[in-house]
Nucleic acid binder design. Sequence first.
DNA 1: ATTCATCCTTACAAAAGTGTGAGTACCGAA
DNA 2: TTCGGTACTCACACTTTTGTAAGGATGAAT
Lengths: 109, 109
Amino acid sequence: MAKRTFICGLDAAITVMGGKWKGLILFSLGEGTRRFGELRRAVPGISERMLILQLREMEASGLVHREVFHQVPPKVEYSLTEFGASLNAAMGPLGAWGEENMARIEAIP
Amino acid sequence: MAKRTFICGLDAAITVMGGKWKGLILFSLGEGTRRFGELRRAVPGISERMLILQLREMEASGLVHREVFHQVPPKVEYSLTEFGASLNAAMGPLGAWGEENMARIEAIP
DNA sequence: ATTCATCCTTACAAAAGTGTGAGTACCGAA
DNA sequence: TTCGGTACTCACACTTTTGTAAGGATGAAT
């Protein structure tokens, strides 16, 4: 994180949610455990590289649990930790707000 | 915005809240009308340039209202629109989450 | 021997975001 | 005449984030 002190809770939350993908990944994992490839399809537009980078960061933050199955072809499952689930819950109202106001947001130019 | 379609409400919300400052500005304005200089002091670490850029974007998004008083020295007041206030309300739980988990977030490395 | 599927990894480059420092305009006060 | 206070504006450079394209490792199926 490289940032020691936050000026308020929102500041802290934004720090762990930074970037344009983490919210979507969190949202998708909020619906249940997902394999890497499933996640990639669930988050349209994300590249494999970005997905991995974000997942690694979220794992390091304790939001996401990663479980490897030693098979061929490989299988890796991602799921939310309790911490991640609590964040997902806290994002709920924001998602609902976006849903309600989506038309207005899309019109912004 | 240059982005036509969102994959979910969270996606849309993150688009208007993008960057590291808008959340803090919104939070600060949520407490009441502020002058430019007051905002600058309320958001420690932000540069004048960044503050203006963010305020202009938020004004364009319809989140913030800007009122100029033609005086010397100049006076400009910023306040939330209803739209901004509704977003601020939706951010409440996220801020509370950050508040509760701040110690853990600060420890992330 | 070749292909296939999955989950990555690497090197490179482009784009977005952020910071710095200077300068402007106004008028009253010293 | 110079200074102070407020709210900007501009040019530039730097940092972070994001994207692109290619390749690797494995073993079963063809």
